[in-house]
Design a protein around this nucleic acid. Sequence first.
DNA 1: ATGTTTCCACCTAGGTGAAAACTT
DNA 2: AAGTTTTCACCTAGGTGGAAACAT
Lengths: 199, 199
Amino acid sequence: SVTDDTSENTIQVELCQNELWHAFHNLGTEMIITKTGRRMFPAIRVKLHGLDPGYKYSVSLEFSQMDKQKYRYVYHSSKWMVSGLGDEMIRDQIYRHPDSPADGAVLESQIVSFERIKLTNNDSPKYGQISLLSMQRFVPRIHVHQISGDGIKVRHFVASFPQTSFTAVTAYQNQEITKLKIARNPFAKGFREAGKNRS
Amino acid sequence: SVTDDTSENTIQVELCQNELWHAFHNLGTEMIITKTGRRMFPAIRVKLHGLDPGYKYSVSLEFSQMDKQKYRYVYHSSKWMVSGLGDEMIRDQIYRHPDSPADGAVLESQIVSFERIKLTNNDSPKYGQISLLSMQRFVPRIHVHQISGDGIKVRHFVASFPQTSFTAVTAYQNQEITKLKIARNPFAKGFREAGKNRS
DNA sequence: ATGTTTCCACCTAGGTGAAAACTT
DNA sequence: AAGTTTTCACCTAGGTGGAAACAT
């Protein structure tokens, strides 16, 4: 498992769009996983603080299983119930942010957005994809590796935010989640309402 | 000016889509420059050979003025004529390929494509843009910098291909160039011919 | 029954040349 | 007259949820 940062200078990771994440978390966030890979919405976007400006850092995203259980959504009660023992996840999957490694000063000056990561239910994920398990729960974790001049990792910091946890699904279960995705994701409009945006 | 590589191991730079470049060169290539920046078509795409697999290299694109003259296109003779003395170019503009610096082994295994570079006639080019001068001639040059562990440039190699030279314009002059751009660039279709691709 | 896959209409995002408007 | 800027219809490219087909 992961060792935390032990030095006196602490790295801070700030989650962007915190209100949006909480809105989804209140309904029980679901993320679609497909064979070809699907983006996350909302995307994990973070702001880093406390980096050493002259050192290089690699920033990565990883998904930790919240438990070993499988869930199902019960429509008449609008609740998630445990439906049995979950499967074992593929080990050691990590998505390195394509703009990293980069200097601490550069990374701190911008928002690190993981919008291009794709979630899949394929057993052999392609480059840029992370393979998850349908009907199981995950929490994203941000890893920050400090790298010395010769490429050796000298420090390692991990952060995670409970409000970004989600259930992986191949089709949305809770229609309130679907509505919120359509309302907030510019790519998602579903079927047009009568008389709106028509030419 | 630029120093050439002097070591025994020579770096080779191979231009991709050579036939396409020659087709344009035969007509006298023109590249549109705009305030907001315009991509090059064809794009400069190269394959690198002879790199040291363990060293890091930075690959960049730069535009060298072919002469200090300004040209105009004479329609009735379909020829470019000198029309006077050109302007001075903004110095030291260089576009580093976004995937570099990278290890020699990584760079050699893929095509280095400069498709995202944008050419502009703006005096203060934004990030990712190179400012050129309308009605003047340029030849792209590929720079390969070998970088040591502590970031110092230890070797420098330059390559250029005469068939990629062009005249920068704000509107196409030679209609044969326009036709070839429309024929070969998937984004450029101009006005549809009657009865084609219609629903 | 329940969950997965495929296909598709509908979007966003952005790269084209043509034409018109503008500048000098 | 000659070159520049703006706008726009028309494309490519690719991210959505819905529905139907499929699998178990």
